[in-house]
Design a protein around this nucleic acid. Structure first.
Lengths: 139, 139
DNA sequence: GTCCGTGCAAAAGCTTTGCAGCCTT
DNA sequence: AAGGCTGCAAAGCTTTTGCACGGAC
């Protein structure tokens, strides 16, 4: 739990570049295992350790964010624009909600609490349309 | 990832009652290991499995909530009133922010997205006053 | 030539689970 | 008496790490 600012010089690696490509090209909020599966065809010898190490690097560079969705495994995204998450309790899907509704929320909290706010997240839990329909049909 | 509604009849257990007592009596958002340590003096044979099992039961009953703080381990709380969390990136402390600022936020999302909102969380990340002071002194 | 990144495998950590016996109902 | 609850230990899973080698600079 530390704001590590390693200043080690970075070298290019195809694995890391493709990892970022994939994250930027999807809106599915993949897990590390997912990303591993998606990269495996391109890098047959890829190892999960590499995926995790590169995710850590990209997170430190601020290009990727880790999402704690309540599951046992983490999900990741590369979206840089502010947005909220709609997390389905039934199937685990995470849907992005693009419209930013409270632009000044961090300032408000900073002013009211003795705490330096550097970021925030707003997540909504509930049932996605797919699961809602499925429940109706089953009952 | 399923809304399990087990209708198994519950029996009383001193371990579970005391676990809830402790959670209700603290504002430190303890981990499962913390709770285990706090209960151990009272139940010398207590096992971590029991702590986890009872946390699961209490969560299903809606009396306890799991907090995903970005750490490797989960934290728990028994506070029922709506509130936000200020999570310190440096020391991991979670501070409750009691003033509810957006009472109608769930309705707004429900109306704008095809998603049935049942709950939400708002978390702020940053630096707590303690770590801020420590940083000033070290630099 | 450095030394960062990778693959592989082992380790680490938190959480879950099988089982036999105890305790609540 | 029935069956949930517990303690104990083993297993499970995601994530991290040590090491030697290959690749980027």
């Amino acid at each position: 739990m530390q704001k590590s600012v390693s200043s080690k010089p970075l070298r290019r690696s195809r694995q890391r570049e493709r990892l970022l490509d994939i994250l930027r090209g999807t809106s599915t909020h993949p897990t590390a295992g997912c990303l591993y599966d998606m990269l495996k065809p391109e890098f047959p010898n890829l190892s999960l350790g590499t995926v995790y190490r590169n995710l850590a690097v990209l997170i430190e560079k601020g290009l990727v964010k880790k999402i704690d969705s309540g599951s046992t495994f983490d999900r990741f995204e590369a979206k840089t624009t502010p947005h909220y998450h709609l997390i389905c309790r039934e199937c685990g899907t995470i849907i992005d909600f693009e419209k930013r509704m409270f632009p000044e929320i961090e300032t408000i909290i900073s002013n009211e609490a003795d705490f330096t706010v550097e970021g925030h997240r707003i997540d909504f839990f509930g049932t996605c349309s797919g699961c809602r329909g499925r429940n109706r049909n089953n009952s």
